[in-house]
């Protein structure tokens, strides 16, 4: 896993705990929002850093595009990269 993932989870835990403890206190709204922002930032980070690698295509017929322009297309449809999750996907037929 990425090394910064550990840092991210560490910050997430601290900030969630901070928001939980500070939610009852009235005079500490600034610190409360600080923790809330950190928590949401880190959760966005974890969300995207998990999703984007899943969009990396698996190996398909990579030789098709290696034929030096002898065929009309050098990037074959077979090798087009499609996302799978989570924003829906349009698989090429």
């Amino acid at each position: 896993m990425k090394p910064y993932f550990i840092i991210a989870i560490f910050i997430l835990v601290i900030s969630v705990l901070g928001t939980l403890f500070l939610s009852n206190e009235s005079g500490m709204t600034i610190i409360f929002f600080l923790f809330a922002e950190l928590a949401s930032l880190v959760s966005f980070y974890i969300f995207f850093s998990v999703i984007i690698p899943s969009l990396f295509p698996e190996y398909r017929n990579t030789d098709e595009n290696f034929n030096c322009g002898a065929s009309g297309i050098y990037l074959n449809q077979e090798e087009m990269y499609t996302p799978k999750t989570p924003f829906g996907s349009v698989k090429d037929e």
């Binding site: 990396f56 990579t62 030789d63 098709e64 595009n65 290696f66 090798e79």
Partner: peptide, 16 residues
């Protein structure tokens, strides 16, 4: 007919 494999057959991402 599909070509014989010549480079990478690893299940990795290939960047052109």
């Amino acid at each position: 007919k599909p070509l014989k494999d010549n480079i990478v057959t690893l299940p990795l991402t290939t960047i052109p």
